[in-house]
Design a protein around this nucleic acid. Structure first.
Lengths: 340, 340
DNA sequence: CTGTTAGCGCATTCAT
DNA sequence: ATGAATGCGCTAACAG
C-alpha cells in the first residue's frame, strides 16, 4: 500500500495515456485547458501506475518549493506550540507544507535557521517571535513573502499578527477591580529580552489604564519586576511581603511567574484566594491544574497560527495579507475572591 | 547579508575559479581527490560570490533529499515535544534537516502525513508513537530507514527507542513502600488506545512487581481504571473514597490523572501530603508548580530524540541502528509524606 | 487545445 | 586529478 520509491515518471503515464508529457503535466496541475477526455485518461493512468510526482523535479523546474519556512523560538513553549499547531492546520488542505526550525531566542541560531530555510528555497516565511532586527526582516521580505507572528513591527504592520496584550491586561485588572480589589500587585518583566518583552510592556500599560479609569492611583510600590521565569514570581512575592505595602491581589504578567508566586504564598502559609487573589497570563495547561485553579488569560494561539498561514497564502497569491489583531480571553477560575 | 535568490550557480563559480563545473561539485562535497590549489580557488569563489547550492538540483541529481521525516502525535504534548527537541538537536550539526508532520493519533491523518513525507523523498523516517500497524511499518522500512520512538515493536526491536516504564513504576512504588506506605492506590488506564497504552500497562506491572517483592499482596481493590485524562483522575479518587478501602498513597500512571486526583482531594478537604501522598508520572512542567510540588517520574525525552536521530543516521550510513533503552528518573518533591 | 523543445542546477559517469 | 557529456523528472515557452 504505502509504496515509496515509485520510479514511475510523467513519461510512463504519458505513454499509457497516449498523450505527451506536457499534457500530463497540465492535466495534473489543471493549468490551462485540457480536453476532458485526455484528462480522464491521464488521471486513470496516474491511478493505475500509482504515480507520485517528484517534488524536487517540480521545484527545480518551477522555481517553487511548495514549502513554507516556519521559525519558532523554543519548541515546547505552550503559546508558541499553539501557534505552530494553527499553522499546520492552516496549511493542511493546501499544497504547501511547513518546514520548522527553532531559533531558541538566540540571534545567531535564528540567523542560521533562516538561512537554512532560505537555502531550501521556501516560498514563504513565518517568523514566530524572535530577535532579528526589523531592517534584516525587510531585506528578507523584499524577496520572500513574510509574516511575523506574536511580534509587532513598526515598519511593516500589515505583516504582523499578534494579540492585543494591552486590552487583555486591562480586562484582567478591571475584573479584579470589579471584584472589589484596590491594591493590586503587578509582577512585570520589562527589562529583559528585546521584543518578547514588548508584550509584557503592553500588559503593564493595560494594568495602569484600568487603574486610572477606575480612578485609582497607580502605586509604583505595587509593581515588581520579574524576568518571566517561575522563580522570579516567587521572589517578587517575597519582595512585596518585605516591602510591607498591603495588597489583596496579584496580577502576574505570565503564568510562570504566577506559579512561582503561588508557591511562595504557599510556603508563607498565605492562602489563595482566601488571603490573596492571584491571576496569571497565558493559560498554560498547568493553570487549570493548580490548587486552586488559576484565573488567567487565554491567548488564541491556534487562531494566530491559522491567520498567519492564511495571510501568507494571500501574500503568495499577490493579495494583501490581511492581518487581524486578536483579542485574548479572560478565563475565570477559582483563584480570585470577591472582597466585601 | 541575508541574501536569498542567489542566482549564482556552480557554473559561475567554475568560471571564476578557472575550473570545470564538475571540479567545483567535487570540491564542494570533497568527494574524490581535488588538488589543494583548485579547491582553494573554488572555496574562495564560493565565498566571494556568496554561492548557495540549490537543494532541489542536488536532490534531483543525487536522489537524496537530505531531509528526515518526523511524525509526531499532537504537537504540544510535553513528552513528545521533548522528543522533537532532541531530534532537532540530533540533526543540528548534520546536513540533514527534519521535516515535521502531525498524525494526531488518527490512523488516517497519520497515513496521509507519512505519504506526504514519503512524497518529499525523505531519506529517513522517525515515528513518535502512533497507531500504524507493524506490518505497514515493515513495508516502509524495506525502502526507507525507519526509527520508532516511544513505542515498542515486537517485530523490529532494533528500530525502537523507548523508556523502561516497568522499571520506572517499580521505582516509584518501591519508594512509596520505603516511605512506609502499604496501601497504595494505582490509577491505571489500560483499556484505551492501542499502543500508547502499553506504557501504562508496563507501569502497572512495575507497580505490582514492587508490591510482590516487598511481600505485600496486591489488592485489586486498590487499582482504578482511568483514561489518561485529567478528569478521570478525579473520578478515580471519588471512586476510591466511595469504595471505602483505606489507603495512604496514590500512584497515578500519568501526571494528568495525578492533577485530577489532586483537585478531587482538594475539593474533599483531604490534604496532600499530610493525609494522602501522591505521585504522578511524566514530569510535566505543571508538576513542579503544583501545591505542593508533585513527586513524579521524568522521562528523558530529549535524550530519546537525540538517540533517535543518531540511530537513524547510523541506519542511513549502513551501520546498525544502536537503539538503547532508557531509564526514567524519579523526581522527588513534596507530595509524599513518610509514615511512622 | 496539444506536442516539441529546452532548460532548471547539480552529480556523475566516462574519458583523458 | 580533471573536463566533457549525460540525465535526474518536471515545467514552461514555443509552435502548431
Amino acid at each position: 500500500m504505502i509504496d515509496h520509491d515509485n520510479k514511475v515518471t510523467i513519461l510512463d503515464i504519458a505513454q499509457k495515456a497516449n498523450v505527451s508529457p506536457s499534457t500530463v503535466s497540465r492535466a495534473l496541475r489543471d493549468s490551462a485547458g485540457v480536453a476532458a477526455a485526455k484528462r480522464e485518461a491521464v488521471m486513470q493512468a496516474v491511478a493505475e501506475l500509482n504515480y507520485r510526482p517528484n517534488v524536487f523535479a517540480q521545484s527545480l523546474a518551477s522555481g517553487q518549493s511548495m514549502t513554507i519556512g516556519v521559525l519558532t523560538q523554543n519548541f515546547g513553549t505552550p503559546f508558541y506550540d499553539g501557534i505552530l499547531l494553527g499553522i499546520m492546520q492552516g496549511f493542511e488542505h493546501t499544497n504547501y507544507s511547513p518546514l520548522f526550525a527553532d531559533g531558541r531566542w538566540q540571534e545567531e541560531t535564528e540567523q542560521r535557521a533562516i538561512q537554512m530555510l532560505l537555502n531550501r528555497r521556501v516560498d514563504g516565511l513565518i517568523l514566530i517571535g524572535g530577535q532579528i532586527a526589523e531592517g534584516a526582516l525587510q531585506t528578507i521580505t523584499a524577496k520572500t513573502p513574510l509574516i511575523v507572528v506574536a511580534r509587532e513591527l513598526r515598519t511593516m504592520p500589515d505583516r504582523c499578527i499578534y494579540v492585543n496584550n494591552e486590552q487583555a491586561a486591562y480586562n484582567v485588572t478591571k475584573y479584579l477591580i470589579d471584584m472589589g480589589h484596590r491594591d493590586i500587585v503587578h509582577i512585570s518583566a520589562t527589562m529583559f529580552y528585546q521584543d518578547s518583552v514588548k508584550d509584557v510592556l503592553y500588559r503593564r500599560q493595560g494594568y495602569l489604564r484600568a487603574l486610572q479609569e477606575a480612578g485609582l492611583t497607580a502605586d509604583p510600590q505595587l509593581v515588581v519586576e520579574g524576568n518571566l521565569q517561575r522563580q522570579s514570581g516567587a521572589i517578587a512575592v517575597e519582595m512585596m511581603l518585605m516591602r510591607g505595602r498591603p495588597f489583596s491581589a496579584i496580577f502576574a504578567a505570565n503564568d510562570q511567574m504566577a506559579f512561582g508566586a503561588r508557591l511562595a504564598l504557599f510556603r508563607k502559609g498565605i492562602r489563595v484566594p482566601e488571603d490573596i487573589s492571584l491571576v496569571g497570563f497565558d493559560d498554560e495547561s498547568a493553570a487549570a491544574y493548580m490548587v486552586p485553579p488559576l484565573t488567567t488569560v487565554q491567548q488564541p494561539a491556534r487562531e494566530l497560527g491559522q491567520a498567519a498561514a492564511a495571510a501568507l497564502l494571500n501574500l503568495i497569491n499577490g493579495k494583501p495579507a490581511a492581518t487581524p489583531i486578536f483579542d485574548a480571553n479572560l478565563v475565570i477560575r477559582e483563584s480570585v475572591r470577591r472582597l466585601q
